[in-house]
Design a protein around this nucleic acid. Sequence first.
DNA 1: ATTACTATAACTCGAGTAC
DNA 2: TGTACTCGAGTTATAGTAA
Lengths: 222, 222
Amino acid sequence: MHTIDAEDAACLRRIALLGGCKGPVRLSTQTLGDQLGISQQTASRRLQSLEKAQMISRTAEPTGQFVLVTRSGEEHLRREFSEYSKIFDVKDEQYILTGTVISGVGEGRYYMSIPHYQEQFQKLCGFTPYPGTLNIKLNPQSVQIRKRMDSLEWTTVPGFKDEHRMFGEARCIRCTISDIPCAIVVPGRTHHPEDVIEIISGTQLRDTLGLQENSDVSVVIG
Amino acid sequence: MHTIDAEDAACLRRIALLGGCKGPVRLSTQTLGDQLGISQQTASRRLQSLEKAQMISRTAEPTGQFVLVTRSGEEHLRREFSEYSKIFDVKDEQYILTGTVISGVGEGRYYMSIPHYQEQFQKLCGFTPYPGTLNIKLNPQSVQIRKRMDSLEWTTVPGFKDEHRMFGEARCIRCTISDIPCAIVVPGRTHHPEDVIEIISGTQLRDTLGLQENSDVSVVIG
DNA sequence: ATTACTATAACTCGAGTAC
DNA sequence: TGTACTCGAGTTATAGTAA
């Protein structure tokens, strides 16, 4: 199997864009060079290289040449095409946040032990939350990803009032950690640091996943 | 607009395949080099080059680094993806963005009242823009659709310079709202929130369509 | 373990040019 | 017009290292 370098691949793609997969195209080395931003000489060399690698075939005419992408040339292009398909197909709604486990202030435990919230999360997320939250300090890049996630659809967990006080609403979004269903919870009122997220789940994630302080975790959303 | 060479592009594609568009990926220069068939040193240089071109961002950890494909990196990949789609005749669908009207900061009004831009848009879109833009907050699904649209053919409106300052370039693409010809305009330099689009048209869309704050709108492209 | 610098060897580019 | 050769300048890769 012949293999070609990235520059030759870009050249092959250009030829295909000009119709080289469908039939022979008249293509001068000067024209090709102009389109790729390289010299006529370099374009000529590229064509020789692609021909040697059996990615294209050429027929010389006194007035110029005709170029055709061969079967293996097309196969090469289709393999690259499928790489892009992989990059973008699944991707659309999926986000991954990475960070490390840190200890919270224990507020999460308090709220998650309140029956109202337990019922609501059961209804909205499909699990009764373990009374406690896993706090994750996001890596700086994940903070950016986290911000983009504000444009996703979050579920609102309504607040309520008992005889003593008001309990605020919260937003949550379903996610998984190592395929365990979880949810990111953002309290409505308190001002959360933007580089920390709180995770709830039906089990105690620290034990289930063997997590300790500073363990690396990946949270998959969507 | 930054541009990158074919080798760097191959490197960017590899990072995306490893999940770099979804979230930060831990990636050593050695591993990357192995996957691309190049040396560790060269992989290191490629990452530096991509970082400089703002196609990726990196965070260093003592144990290694995390790499993330930036928005313009993803846009680059989507443009290449669309080239392959053209080669293999994946038919261009129609795109529909839905969202609600929000008020902008009035910047649009300023730019659309500048004769240079008015002339350019007249030439490129077929109407002289009303001095003002309609800002639409996209619903979450439409944000995803909007991203895919990066692979469509956008018209570039060149920037210019007067005696006082530089005016940046912009991209636009024709569309319709309730069959009224419009265009989505994206300023070249400023970093736009990804869930908001700006629409220009020959008429004042708010009045013509009876739109108010939070009115639902559908934008049809293609 | 990492990343990335420096030095040098190896390539690649395009000007000039032949056909 | 074409394509493609040679050759010097410039660029890029890797080995050897440092941090």
